[in-house]
């Protein structure tokens, strides 16, 4: 099987990685770069635990080939907090007790951040719609919805905007 040397910017740092054709972005992040914050829950695009930003849009990293990311910019949950300061949506998830086992949380946070970046004042329906690809078996979702709604308000108040 062919291998490819790719150059990809991950959480702001440029990485040169050797990847086989069939390696997914998820596997590259977790097993080549040791970024284990992004989780594998199904390898099939269904659970959303693997959600990361690819060129500023959220994707299921289990359904993207690593080789497709040559020249791209990837951001994972590890990039959300800046210099020890949590992203408003991270803080809000804590404040609302919207995390239990925490396995879905990294993916939820990326989807939520992506939503707030494209729509700083989402309605509840829009939040539900944006998170429908992030399965959570623990929380019953409503705390997560509230956390995102509140993070939007905090974001609007402090004008911190997106994480870019």
């Amino acid at each position: 099987m062919a291998h490819h040397r790719i150059s990809v910017t991950v959480n702001g740092s440029v990485e040169s990685v050797d990847v086989p054709s069939n390696m997914t972005l998820l596997t590259m992040l977790r097993e080549k770069l040791g970024l284990t914050g992004t989780k594998n829950g199904c390898t099939a695009g269904e659970c959303g635990a693997c959600t990361v930003f690819l060129n500023d849009e959220p994707v299921n990293s289990c359904l993207v080939l690593a080789v497709e990311c040559d020249g791209a910019e990837v951001r994972t949950v590890e990039s959300l907090a800046r210099k020890g300061k949590l992203d408003p949506v991270q803080q809000s998830v804590i404040d609302h007790n919207a995390v239990q086992c925490g396995f879905c949380t990294p993916g939820v946070l990326i989807s939520a951040r992506a939503l707030l970046d494209r729509n700083p004042d989402p309605s509840e329906e829009e939040i539900r719609d944006a998170l429908v690809g992030n399965l959570c078996r623990c929380t019953g979702y409503v705390r997560i919805l509230d956390a995102v709604k509140d993070a939007a308000q905090v974001g609007a108040a402090s004008e911190t905007g997106g994480s870019r």
């Binding site: 970024l35 959300l80 804590i94 007790n97 995390v99 990294p106």
Partner: peptide
């Protein structure tokens, strides 16, 4: 209703699960 002890590391991606 104090804050969960494990919340911070779970939102930053630092919390380790077996596969990590």
């Amino acid at each position: 209703s104090v804050t969960r002890l494990d919340a911070h590391e779970k939102v930053t991606g630092e919390a380790l699960f077996a596969d990590d």
